[in-house]
């Protein structure tokens, strides 16, 4: 599904990703862990098409296409979903309009008719239940006045609405209490599908108790320094990232 080869990325002249290689097959869950500043979020943003980054080298092949050639909106329409670490508040853009436009843009791209009002409302009700999203929230502007937990639930709700093929969840667990974490994880797990892959970016092992990865990669100073099965997360938790620093040296 996704092949990243020797991806090197800089921002404002500073190299952040220094040759990333990663292969993700359909249906797999990959966790990317690492200390702050190691480039985890950069990787998520680059895959989603944020423009402020400079691609120095490498390629990203998604479903046989060079992802880096596509606009952010086209990547999203092709099924790449980024769950934001810090979802932005957009006052004046109503949630409902936003979600509706979003879903219908994706349908248009796939050559499908827009949903009727009835179909849309039904779909929205269904997916809101999945993440226990307060009904009142969809009457507000996008993320406006949402608590941290509500914002994260809203991300998973949007993911459920769009049913992406590749979901990249950037620190979805940060700032979530254990109940919210469970709800969010349940939402993610409910969307698991043999054709759908997930990249979970996280700092802590805890999330991986709920979203069980097939592979864990450790990103450190812009490179993947270690890849293994889910047991690696536990080892990291136990020994801390310092262990890794010594290990990699």
């Amino acid at each position: 599904m996704l092949t990243i080869k020797n991806l090197r990325v800089a921002i404002e002249g500073k190299e952040i990703l220094k040759g990333i290689n990663l292969e993700i097959k359909a249906g797999e869950v990959h966790a990317i862990m690492g200390p702050n500043g190691s480039g985890k979020s950069t990787l998520g943003n680059v895959l989603a098409g944020k423009e402020e980054y400079e691609i120095l080298d490498g390629e990203v092949i998604y479903e046989g296409q060079d992802l880096l050639d596509l606009s952010a909106e086209d990547r999203a329409r092709m099924g790449v979903f980024l769950g934001f670490q810090y979802p932005v508040e957009i006052p004046g853009v109503p949630m409902v309009n936003f979600i509706k436009t979003s879903v219908n843009e994706m349908r248009k791209f796939k050559g499908l008719e827009p949903l009727t009002a009835g179909e849309f409302l039904k779909l929205m009700r269904e997916k809101k239940e999945l993440v226990h999203l307060d009904s009142q929230l969809t009457n507000r502007s996008v993320n406006e006045g949402f608590s941290g937990g509500e914002k994260k639930k809203n991300e998973i709700f949007q993911m459920a609405m769009l049913e992406p093929k590749l979901a990249i969840l950037d620190e979805t667990d940060s700032g979530l209490d254990i109940d919210a974490l469970r709800i969010v994880s349940d939402g993610v797990n409910a969307l698991k599908h043999p054709e759908r892959s997930t990249i979970v970016i996280t700092h802590y092992q805890r999330l991986l108790d709920y979203i069980v990865p097939d592979f864990v990669h450790v990103l450190y100073q812009g490179q993947i320094v270690k890849s293994a099965g889910k047991e690696l997360a536990l080892e990291l938790e136990e020994k801390g990232y310092d262990w890794l620093k010594n290990h990699s040296l």
Partner: peptide, 29 residues
């Protein structure tokens, strides 16, 4: 707001439409 623009684009909304949405939202108040 570039962050908001990217957020909308990451949700399938084309750049021109996303800009329009943001400016409309600005005026909407």
């Amino acid at each position: 707001d570039e962050e908001a623009l990217f957020y909308l684009r990451a949700r399938c909304i084309g750049e021109a439409d996303a800009r329009m949405m943001l400016m409309n939202a600005f005026a909407h108040e």
